[in-house]
């Protein structure tokens, strides 16, 4: 077993929330794809897996509720974790996911690095890319939840708002879902896992920890800060068990394969959709 010193990046609660997010996201993606491609054989085949259009819709709705529940749970956890006495430092400090000016500078520096014009940015605990991924959920889930809720209860919605709002809600629901799914597959899955430094799998969200050496390469400012504050020991973690690693490798690759399949088949079959 690997005995190199490791550092904890994600606690059990966050990892479980993330697994719940993966599961609900994939169920919603597959049932939603089946519904969107209803007019094609491929869409029908997907819906048949869930017992047809009606039961796929029901599963889609319940998975949506579950995802919203997980989202609200996460917000509650974040509110609980916030240091309310030192709110400014807690919100805009280096341990926070709130975007700061530094993120824009690092983004520019990274672009310059592509062309060899600058050194790689010395990232803190969260880099701009991770922050964008995190906040994308914050606009995606509420938008999908509210528009989805309107479409589940159209008659009730039409009492509060004009009925044509349902057309707009469906458009937003579909467009945001397409954006989220394609972004997650292309950027989050492929670039997250298949870069040179992360291949074959970026394990940190499952194992929760990363070797100090690896963290020092990716997030040197964070490690330097921890060393300076003598907190490196506090955050030390054990390496994940082999059986657990096997499990999350299988899980991770299953999700990536499913995502790739949906992306390619969805792109191909999109020419046969004629609904508006």
């Amino acid at each position: 077993m690997d005995t190199a010193p490791r550092i904890r990046r994600f606690g059990v609660l966050d990892r479980l929330t993330h697994v719940l997010l993966i599961l609900t996201f994939m169920v919603l993606t597959v049932t939603g794809t089946g519904r969107m491609y209803f007019a094609t054989d491929w869409g029908q085949a997907i819906l048949d897996l869930f017992g047809g259009y009606d039961s796929a819709t029901l599963i889609h709705i319940w998975a949506g509720w579950l995802m919203t529940g997980g989202f609200l749970f996460h917000i509650a956890v974040v509110l609980f974790r916030l240091d309310w006495r030192h709110l400014g430092r807690s919100l805009f400090g280096p341990d926070s996911l709130v975007p700061t000016w530094r993120d824009f500078k690092e983004f520019g520096q990274r672009i310059a690095w592509f062309f060899g014009l600058a050194k790689l940015p010395r990232f803190e605990r969260w880099n701009y890319w991770e922050k964008f991924d995190y906040w994308a959920v914050f606009w995606g889930v509420p938008l999908l939840f509210i528009s989805g809720l309107m479409l589940i209860y159209p008659v009730e919605t039409s009492r509060l708002l004009p009925g044509w709002v349902l057309n707009v809600a469906l458009l937003f629901h579909r467009a945001e879902a397409v954006l989220a799914v394609t972004y997650i597959i292309i950027v989050h899955l492929l670039i997250g896992h298949f870069r040179r430094s992360t291949f074959p799998l970026n394990e940190v969200m499952f194992s929760g920890s990363v070797s100090v050496e690896e963290a020092g390469e990716e997030k040197s400012d964070w490690i330097n800060r921890l060393k300076r504050e003598n907190r490196l020991e506090q955050l030390s973690a054990r390496a994940p068990a082999t059986l657990y690693r096997v499990l999350y490798f299988i899980f991770g690759y299953a999700v990536i394969a499913l995502g790739l399949y949906l992306l390619i088949a969805g792109g191909y079959y999109s020419q046969f959709i004629n609904i508006h």
């Binding site: 990274r110 592509f114 964008f132 467009a175 397409v178 972004y183 292309i186 950027v187 670039i191 040179r196």
Partner: peptide, 23 residues
């Protein structure tokens, strides 16, 4: 929504590809 999708991918596709190649 169209420009949101185009904007997101206009930033993140070249960013991802550049990152991938550069590493």
């Amino acid at each position: 929504m169209f420009w949101l999708i185009v904007g997101v991918f206009l930033i993140f596709i070249p960013h991802s590809v550049g990152w991938w190649i550069r590493e």
